[in-house]
Nucleic acid binder design. Structure first.
Length: 501
RNA sequence: GCCCCCAUCGUCUAGGGGACUAGGACGUGACCCUUUCAAGGUCAAGACCGGGGUUCGAAUCCCCGUGGGGGCACCA
């Protein structure tokens, strides 16, 4: 009864979001697992847009979705925007198909026309709740004479089509992650298949499309688990073979207490964190890191390997290693993976990815200069967005140094001025203004003045970069260039002398 | 209220009867390296929700409890 798609056979899988909001990491993970399954089996990854609810439609949602997916590298083989053998891939354009299938069920006695009004149903629901019963369809039209019902429909009476769910016995469905799940049929409601506006509901549309599109594995969120028995009944009513069902665990908020709420999602942005894919991109996270992060929430490879590229995952991903328990979001771990992947990038690539972030920080960054500083900051940034801050002084004509920073650690103003003076003299006569030429002579200066290297270098760092934290001093000075470095030192000496007098 | 799912360090997880003095990672602390900050290296603290079974033996299997999560729309 359960569709047993053997490993190795090409998997046709789909990611089927509804365009009602921005794409978040939960959706991204579902899409990722689908993509991996398709990719590793030589199958197809399909993007289907479930836009049957025009009331909840959000115009920007689809563009946000496709840009998120593409940025993550989760391109689809068939579906919205790219077409394919089962066009169209927008459910709003498949109304006739659903209607036809719903009628087929009515004809088989597996579904029925229902003329109850929303008001009547609301009232019934209220009464049921008052009686502490599970809200359910009262069954008013379930056993209407089929010919008269058909006549009322033909006469244009407003109606919906409901699934005639079996009331006796039980059903056992198999989930790849959770095993067999058995429920009593009486707990399954007569769900609406086609609304009075003619649009199908998820329960019908998704089942029909998954069958027609020859989907082999349905990977979806755990929130669908409760309706799995209903879906299995619908498959059976049509006489179709079920796909392999895989219900993925949900993501919990960082505290581990419940799902992210709308309000919490908004508050999170204030702290520089977000669950939305495009926000993560703007925050300076690498798609490689985001992928690595989310793939491990609910899946693992072994007891030690955690660094994965998309290529690794296509090779190593397996449904067997999925974990059914909910996972709390940990942004610290995202930072960790981002650092790992930043360091794994080659310099040219990193440099290119850094450019937009300098631009966003309103720094007019010359690509050649960025290329030069990239190796200096590669191990020092955790997000791309950190770069403009740590490297700002490379791009400024003037830097700001406070009076306090003009004076070296455990030194007086006069000592600081003298140290800078001596450093200036040595630097000025160097055969080449580069790291290799500077290092030894500058250490000698420190010795000569009875200073620790850290004291002298720290002072120079303040004076030359305007920062207490910076990339390595001499490498930085080499890039800033002799003229600017010497000017900054001279300026500092002058200010120190003014302070002293 | 009813139905379903889940349960190992703070967090993500390995573990599928003996290899467990329960492994890895993030985070935390210490140390090393070191011109700052990172990165890197070493070490440390830190968990099997509770109770019953089954078994020679249980983190692993079963039951109950508890806790957490999801669902019960003419939303998806």
């Amino acid at each position: 009864m359960n569709a047993k798609t053997s490993q190795g056979k090409p998997a046709r899988v789909r990611f089927a979001p509804s365009p009602t909001g921005l794409t978040h990491m939960g959706s991204a993970r579902t899409a990722l697992y689908n993509k991996l399954l398709a990719e590793q089996s030589g199958g197809a990854f399909i993007l289907r847009i479930e836009d049957t609810d025009q009331k909840r439609f959000v115009a920007e949602a689809e563009a946000d979705l496709t840009s998120s997916l593409r940025w993550l590298g989760l391109d689809w083989d068939e579906g919205a925007g790219v077409g394919g053998p089962h066009d169209p891939y927008y459910q709003s354009q498949r109304m006739a198909i659903y209607r036809e299938h719903a009628e087929e069920l009515v004809g088989k006695g597996k579904a029925f026309y229902c003329f109850c009004t929303p008001e009547e149903l609301a009232e019934a629901r209220k009464a049921q709740q008052a009686a502490k019963q599970q809200p359910h369809y009262p069954g008013t039209c379930r056993d209407l004479d089929s010919e008269t019902a058909a006549q009322r429909v033909a006469d244009g009476e407003t109606h919906v089509i409901r699934f005639k769910s079996p009331k006796e016995g039980s059903i056992t469905v198999h989930d790849r992650l959770r095993g067999d799940i058995t429920v009593e049929n009486r707990t399954i409601d007569d769900k609406i298949l086609v609304k009075s506006d003619g649009h199908a509901l998820y329960h019908l549309a998704a089942m029909v499309d998954d069958h027609l599109m020859e989907i082999t594995h349905v990977l979806r969120g755990e929130e669908w688990l409760a309706s799995l028995p209903l879906h299995a009944h619908i498959y059976e009513a049509f006489g179709w073979q079920q796909p392999e069902w895989v219900h993925l665990s949900v993501f919990l908020k960082p505290s581990g207490k419940g799902k992210m709420s709308k309000r919490e999602t908004a508050e999170m942005k204030l702290t520089g964190q977000s669950i939305f894919v495009n926000d993560l991109k703007d925050l300076g996270y690498l798609p490689e890191a985001v992928i690595n992060w989310i793939v491990l929430m609910g899946w693992s490879y072994d007891d030690r390997t955690e660094f994965f590229t998309m290529g690794d995952l296509v090779e190593k991903f397996s449904l067997d290693k999925l974990n059914p328990s909910p996972a709390a979001i940990d942004f610290k771990k995202l930072d960790h993976f981002n650092g790992l992947h930043i360091r794994a990038l080659d310099e040219k690539e990193l440099s290119a990815r850094l450019l937009p972030f300098f631009e966003a920080a309103e720094i007019d960054a010359d690509p050649d200069l960025v290329a030069k500083i990239t190796p200096l900051i590669q191990a020092r940034i955790t997000t791309l967005d950190d770069a403009p801050e740590i490297a700002a002084f490379f791009f400024k004509d003037t830097i700001e140094v406070s009076d306090d920073d003009l004076i070296g650690s455990k030194m007086t103003a006069a000592e600081s001025a003298a140290a800078l003076q001596r450093a200036f003299e040595i630097l000025d006569v160097l055969p080449a203004f580069d790291t290799a030429s500077m290092k030894a002579p500058m250490r000698a200066v420190a010795d000569e003045l009875g200073l620790k290297a850290g004291q002298l270098f720290g002072l120079l760092r303040n004076v030359v970069t305007g920062q207490q934290v910076s990339p390595p001093l001499f490498e930085s000075m080499e890039i800033v260039g002799k003229a600017t470095v010497m000017a900054r030192i001279t300026n500092a000496i002058q200010r120190l002398e003014a302070i002293g007098s």
